[in-house]
């Protein structure tokens, strides 16, 4: 169902809320009304919002687990190669492949690889660094990192129609509805 859209140069509509509960309620109603291309912006994490809006959890933990395994193998093979193959040293008649001694560096590299993956993976999956984003065009949006809560319905959404969507957002109890320039 395509309704007439006047979305030239319009990224979407942004509604401002002033409490955590009101943006959660508004998101639920917007999702129930059939909107799918929407996003909530909050000054602190509200885990429920991701479940309401995106209904999908991140793959980051799997990526971290995989890299943890890579880190462990890197640590172990590095030590095995250096101490057994490339540069074997006879220390008090001990065998070159003293694997218990290799546990600690392998363990440290496991943690190093997975911690770096968790941090860099989070930043990369979030698409950061991203210097420009349309939401920053709204002046009030600077409060999204202090004490205000914003819900944006994108113009791309199949149900988006500027007038109707605007009054829909007003009806959710928004303190203000703003155009987001592209």
């Amino acid at each position: 169902m395509h309704v007439s859209k006047d979305k030239t140069g319009l990224y979407g509509l942004m509604a401002e809320f002033d409490s955590a509960q009101s943006i959660v309620d508004a998101s639920i109603k917007a999702v129930d009304a059939g909107y799918s291309k929407l996003e909530a912006y909050t000054p602190f994490p509200i885990e429920e919002l991701n479940d309401i809006i995106h209904k999908k959890r991140t793959n980051l933990p799997k990526l971290v687990l995989f890299m943890a395994f890579c880190g462990m193998m890197t640590g172990f093979t590095l030590q095995y190669w250096a101490s057994v193959i490339e540069y074997p040293m006879n220390i008090g008649g001990r065998p070159p492949a003293t694997w218990p001694a290799f546990i600690i560096p392998s363990y440290e590299l496991t943690i190093l690889f997975s911690a770096l993956t968790a941090a860099i993976g989070m930043i990369a999956l979030n698409g950061l660094p991203q210097p420009y984003h349309p939401v920053f065009n709204v002046d009030r949006f600077s409060l999204a990192s202090s004490d205000k809560f914003f819900l944006v319905i994108e113009a791309e959404d199949a149900h988006f129609a500027k007038e109707q969507t605007s009054s829909f957002l007003q009806g959710l109890g928004a303190k203000g509805v703003y155009d987001v320039a592209e």
Binding site: S27, E39, A40, Y41, T42, P43, F44, P45, I46, E47, L49, N50, I52, I53, H54, R57, T58, L60, M122, I123, L125, N126, L128, P129, Q130, P131, Y132, H133, V135, F136, A144, S145
Partner: peptide, 13 residues
Amino acid sequence: LGWRGSARHWHRY
């Protein structure tokens, strides 16, 4: 880095 505090950002965060 252009942090916006979106629900998806916070979830991964």
